[in-house]
């Protein structure tokens, strides 16, 4: 789709709800995958119950829902490599980064070296990060 040529804005997608129970997490991911085609500067934030979206070994067999958690590990292929998880949200839920799936991307400027794309950031740092965005979409 044609947009104003050369315009690159900082888009931040806030994910604040649990992966199941409501559709927000799934439909947020659908937005992000489309957004990747627009060559904008994309950041993803997971905070509040949204941190559960990235937990590893999700098993939805018992609830009849599609397990879409594996899609997050494909984000690197979409050049989405700034994924922030709020430290306090993890701690408040008794989680650590070890409970989350590893998210990586291949750096085309560094001989396709595999690099980490998931960063745990504190609430104050996250505030500053959100403040510098042009567009914030909260799900």
């Amino acid at each position: 789709m044609e947009t104003a040529e050369g315009v690159v804005k900082k888009f931040c997608y806030m994910n604040r709800k649990a992966p199941y129970g409501t559709i927000y997490a799934l439909e947020s991911l659908e937005v992000v995958l489309i957004a990747a085609a627009f060559d904008q500067d994309i950041s993803l934030v997971f905070a509040d119950d949204g941190v559960y979206q990235l937990t590893k070994d999700q098993d939805t067999d018992g609830i009849g829902m599609k397990n879409f958690s594996k899609t997050y590990s494909a984000l690197g292929d979409y050049d989405i490599n700034k994924i922030y998880v709020e430290k306090e949200s993890l701690e408040e839920r008794g989680l650590s980064v070890d409970d989350l799936q590893a998210l990586t991307y291949e750096d085309e400027d560094d001989d396709w070296a595999e690099k980490n794309s998931l960063f745990v950031v504190g609430r104050e740092e996250l505030t500053a990060l959100i403040d510098e965005q042009d567009v914030v979409l909260s799900f």
């Binding site: 947009t3 937005v31 957004a35």
Partner: peptide, 12 residues
């Protein structure tokens, strides 16, 4: 229409 319309709105 598609989700691209949302992203375009964010850009424009």
């Amino acid at each position: 229409s598609g989700l691209g319309q949302l992203i375009e709105a964010g850009i424009q």
